[in-house]
Write a protein that binds this DNA or RNA. Structure first.
Lengths: 143, 143
DNA sequence: GATAGATATGATTCATTTTATCCTATTTGA
DNA sequence: TCAAATAGGATAAAATGAATCATATCTATC
């Protein structure tokens, strides 16, 4: 019941790009090194972030990734779900047919509540907000 | 980021035993059939529930599992964590050393909040409460 | 006390998911 | 045109989760 490494990498990547600011390109290699992400794997993750509309991928020399949405509009939920898919906490909610019990199950209701709270918390968090306070990622400011 | 099957089975098993009430033994086979759980696997899960102090395992003929804690005191969180371990939503929180960033990381803080909310929601849910309302599990009342 | 019915427990297998990498293709700035 | 960079499909490697097997142990009953 944990965020996958891919999800974590996506967050790190977006943190980096948000520090660079909208429109500024960072190369895959540069981001991979700074954020401790396997470079090839980062490529895959970037594709998903691009499909979700958060970044733009630039090929060729001087290529890389660049943010195309202001950090104020990028939420932690959005980034995470762009990579790991919509968050569900149990199978019952995602695939009701996996459980022979009815949709009026009381346990189901609790998980639904928990899921809603979790997604809401992640949705209320924007990358602009994450960067406001001094954080571990302020290491980037030194560049 | 989902509850494992083992966790789901544990909940089902406890629902069944709570229906039977404290002190009443249900055989592994009986519970496995009623709750759609692989019998052997249920054995493993029962061991964990026993270690956590929720149930007692009775060997020999007429053996099986029996609840030893009133349903009012059994929480969804307790049962789930007895089987899958303490809930963490990301590695950073569980193993801070897995992240080279500091513990003052702002992202860390959000996950911590999310985790706290999730665990609280599950903790506030008792099996007595789950059984109060008509639910999919009321099928058991027909026995 | 012997037996049969029940669970315990360690080992093992099987399946799925996640993580990571390889390789060829494509793009593009100089 | 070339070289630097990413794309993207395929594949491998690793980790996790799910389930089962085989043997051991317990205990109600006769």
């Amino acid at each position: 019941m944990r965020l996958t490494r891919a999800g974590e990498y996506a967050v790190r990547c977006m943190m980096y790009l948000c520090c660079l600011g909208v429109g500024n390109t960072g190369s895959r290699k540069e981001i991979a090194q700074a954020m401790d992400i396997p470079a090839q794997f980062l490529g895959k993750i970037a594709q998903q972030l691009a499909r979700a509309g958060y970044i733009e991928i630039v090929q060729g020399p001087k290529g890389g990734f660049r943010l195309i949405v202001p950090p104020e509009e990028v939420t932690l939920l959005g980034v995470v779900e762009a990579v790991i898919g919509e968050i569900y906490l149990n199978d019952c909610l995602m695939r009701p047919e996996s459980c022979f019990r009815s949709p009026t199950c009381t346990v189901y209701g609790v998980w639904e509540t928990a899921r809603r709270q979790l997604r809401q918390t992640l949705e209320q968090t924007t990358f602009a907000g994450l960067l406001e306070e001094p954080s571990c990622f302020t290491i980037l400011d030194e560049n």
